[in-house]
Amino acid sequence: MTPNPALQPSFTGDHRNPARASNARWKAGAAPSVVSLRQADSDANPKVHLDGISLSYKTNDGKRLLALDNIDLKVQPGEFLCIVGPSGCGKSTLLHLIAGLNQPTSGSVLMDNKPVTAPGTDRILIFQELGLFPWLKVGENVEFGMKMKGLSKAERRERVDYYLRLVHLSQFKDSYTHQLSGGMRQRVALARALATEPDVLLMDEPFAALDAQTRDLLHDELERLWAETGRTIIFVTHNVREAIRLGDRVALISFRPGKIKREYRVDLPRPRQLEDVSVALCAREILDDLRGEIDKSLREQYGDKEVHA
């Protein structure tokens, strides 16, 4: 197979050409100010810097398990980074570390070159299970982070309206979350995260449980929101095509210990579609690399000596 020119593999620690992705951001309609800002960024000032992160913990039988092994990763401001890997490789754990919900065993998470020690509203995690509060209405859910931050009531109300409009849920402000469909709930979680106006949005397989149509729709919306708000997004998924559909860059994590096996830059023009041939070709290449890791994870899960594909 000839190498795909849209996909440029780069190995861990290689962060040349940081502003490259901005050129490909949005063919038309992108906010020019955002683009120029990103071009001014240099490699020396990453938004998020994972500096040699390792995490190990004790399993039930008393053994120490190395979940993440010396992860080095720099994420540029406004970048859309996708992290892929087999299930159980520690992708979600990595997001929890960046969110400050957990502390690494060694190494540190840096936000704007300052170490992260606790959760903070400058980086909001959208959980795989969303974690919407069922005792609050949709509007109150969106308001929650701002309330904790101590914003004034008027400002909160204004922002709730703004972000609900952004995710097209204005008329559901007074509904309870269980009254909404899966895709709508996903959008509430997105609005709740955006409303605290974080610099970095951390997303943990947010669309894994959705049907294909809803997922396509939300891909479009997420890409639009990213272009409109200029946030940095770190998006974890096990779906390689999804990663290529959305990401400027894709980082592949290996299975136990979780290491960054390889990084890829995706130079396909936006907007992309999941069905694009070019997306499929890129995915094929990453999948070839991923195959070995998936086999490892399956062997671990099912205890087989060999897995026949």
Binding site: L101, F127, G131, F133, F144, M148, R192, T196
Partner: peptide, 16 residues
Amino acid sequence: KIHSMAGRNLGATGLK
């Protein structure tokens, strides 16, 4: 458990 994690993630601590 997700609720307490989500709460902390959105900036709630201690008594709040």
